[in-house]
Computed example of a mutant assay.
Amino acid sequence: MASVIPVILILAIVLGLMACGYLFVPKGLHQTTIRTAIMLTLASCYLMWMVTYMAQLHPLISES
C-alpha cells in the first residue's frame, strides 16, 4: 500500500534545491530572473509529479 510519505520527502528535497538555487546563483544582471526561473521550474515539476502520484493513489474512476 502506497502512502503520502514520498510526497512529503520529495517536497523536502525540492525545497532544499530551491534554497540552493536561491543562495548559489552568481551575482549579476540577471540574478533575479535566474532565481525565479529555477524556483518556478522546481515548483512546477513537483506539482506535476505530485498530482500524477496522488491520482494513481486515489483514482477518480475505480474498476470493479
Rank of each mutant, 00 (worst) to 15 (best):
M1H: 06
M1C: 10
M1D: 04
M1G: 12
A2I: 03
A2T: 10
S3I: 02
S3W: 09
V4W: 05
V4P: 00
P6N: 01
V7F: 07
V7K: 00
V7E: 00
V7M: 03
V7S: 10
I8N: 09
I8D: 00
I8E: 00
L9P: 01
L9C: 02
I10M: 13
I10C: 09
I10W: 03
I10R: 14
I10Q: 01
L11N: 09
A12C: 11
I13F: 14
V14A: 06
V14M: 15
V14P: 03
L15N: 10
L15C: 08
L15Y: 12
G16H: 03
G16M: 02
L17I: 03
L17R: 04
L17T: 00
A19C: 05
A19Q: 07
A19M: 11
A19Y: 02
A19W: 07
C20V: 12
G21R: 09
G21K: 01
G21S: 05
Y22D: 13
Y22F: 15
L23V: 01
F24Y: 13
F24W: 06
F24A: 03
V25H: 07
P26H: 08
P26Q: 11
P26I: 06
K27Q: 11
K27Y: 06
G28L: 11
G28W: 08
G28Q: 10
L29W: 12
L29F: 10
L29S: 07
L29K: 11
L29R: 12
L29G: 09
H30E: 04
H30D: 02
H30W: 14
Q31W: 01
Q31P: 05
Q31R: 13
Q31L: 04
T32K: 15
T32V: 15
T33M: 14
I34Y: 03
I34V: 15
R35E: 04
R35S: 05
T36E: 08
T36D: 13
T36V: 03
A37T: 12
A37Y: 07
I38Y: 00
I38W: 00
M39S: 14
L40P: 08
L40K: 09
T41R: 12
L42C: 10
L42R: 10
L42I: 11
A43L: 08
S44R: 11
S44Q: 08
S44I: 13
C45T: 15
Y46I: 04
Y46R: 04
L47D: 08
L47E: 04
L47G: 06
L47Q: 03
M48K: 08
M48D: 11
M48I: 14
W49I: 00
M50I: 11
V51E: 03
V51S: 04
T52L: 13
T52E: 05
T52N: 12
Y53Q: 06
Y53H: 12
Y53V: 02
M54D: 07
M54A: 11
M54I: 14
M54L: 15
A55D: 13
Q56V: 08
Q56H: 09
Q56W: 06
L57C: 13
L57W: 06
P59S: 02
P59R: 01
P59C: 03
L60Q: 09
L60S: 06
L60N: 04
I61L: 15
I61F: 14
I61M: 10
S62K: 14
S62Q: 05
E63Y: 07
S64F: 04
